[in-house]
Simulated scan of single mutants.
Amino acid sequence: MTALTVDSPVPPAKRVGPIATLQQTLTLAWRSLVQIKHNPWELLDLSIQPIMFLLLFTYVFGTAISGSTGDYLQFALPGLLVQNALFYTLSTAIGLNTDITKGVFDRLRSLPISRLAPLAGRILADTFKQVWAFALLVGFGMILGFRITTSFAGLLGALALLVVVSLAMSWMSVLIGLKASSPEKVQMIAFSTMMPLTFTSSALVPSQTFPGWLKAWSDVNPVTHLADAIRGLMIGGDVASPVLVSLLWAAGFALVFAPLAVTVFRSRI
């Protein structure tokens, strides 16, 4: 008799190298972006909401706050860029929670890929969407009369700073998305966090008009420093101090929330 030998399957590697992790992250980021093709409402939501806020704040509150819609547009558009970027971190949390609750991450976990690639891919894809929203809002604002009075380098610096800070702050939204039991609860918790931060800052209204106790909080609010930094880079004013403080806040958010989010992600996935 001839004995048949069957090769035993080769066990998958326990660790995925950094290059493979990067490739898998880019692939999963592309997956998130391609979904827009099958769900164009996502792109419409990303496009219509910023424009709606811009029109409402400019033409409803502009004259009352700054005396004219043109002056208010020049003041408020940088703040609206900040508000839109921070609010869009909610999309990262909701999308992440949806993938987890619908079992998408369970299917990805069965593949021989890095366990962090789905998380990193989602965050990277949403960063590209942030750039789209920034360009759209600035372009539409310029149609309404907004003017960049610094330089093109200042505009690029504003975009880079906004992406860095919103990316750091998105770890807080990621943690909420991992801990919440449903996308609806993610939206409720995250919106309740972002709304006070935004509307108690100088993003949309000069903080000098606030009561003393509220102005004291606004002066340390990270959204105030980020809005002032974006405003300085795009239309002039103090730049060094608000940029530095914004980067320090970004580092703080990343150092606190990124390890917590990764720990919860590893335990849940």
Rank of each mutant, 00 (worst) to 15 (best):
G95A: 10
D238C: 07
F191T: 15
V82Y: 02
F53Y: 11
L28Y: 01
L90P: 00
G95D: 08
S47N: 03
T224R: 02
S192T: 14
P112N: 12
D126Q: 14
L214P: 12
N84P: 10
G70D: 04
T127N: 11
P78K: 00
S207M: 10
L4W: 09
T98L: 14
L116V: 15
D126E: 15
I48A: 10
M188K: 03
I143T: 10
L81F: 01
Q49G: 07
K14T: 11
R15C: 06
P242Y: 06
P112K: 10
G79M: 04
L81V: 02
S66A: 15
G157Q: 05
I65A: 01
A20C: 05
V264Y: 04
T69N: 04
W41Q: 14
R109P: 13
D106L: 05
T2W: 02
T200A: 09
W41S: 14
Y72G: 07
S8L: 13
A203E: 04
S202W: 12
V60P: 02
M52Y: 10
L137H: 09
L167H: 07
Q130T: 12
R107P: 06
G154W: 01
R31H: 13
F140D: 11
K102T: 15
G103W: 00
S32K: 07
P112Y: 04
F53E: 05
A85L: 01
F61R: 01
F134R: 06
T27E: 13
S202L: 05
L244V: 14
S114C: 13
P9W: 04
I65C: 04
I51E: 01
A160L: 06
L116E: 14
A216T: 13
A117Q: 13
F199H: 08
I148A: 08
V186A: 08
S207C: 05
T224E: 00
I148P: 11
F134I: 05
A180S: 11
P259L: 02
G154F: 00
T209W: 08
L124T: 15
I51T: 06
R147K: 08
A93P: 08
A168I: 02
P118T: 11
G62E: 05
Q49W: 09
H225G: 05
L73M: 09
F61N: 01
K14D: 08
R31S: 07
S8V: 15
G95C: 11
D7I: 13
G232E: 11
T27Y: 06
I269P: 12
V262Y: 01
M234D: 06
G154A: 03
S173M: 14
T200S: 12
E184K: 07
L248E: 01
L33P: 12
I230K: 00
T149H: 06
T209H: 10
T193N: 02
S218C: 10
P12K: 04
M1K: 09
L22I: 12
V243T: 07
V243Y: 01
Q83P: 08
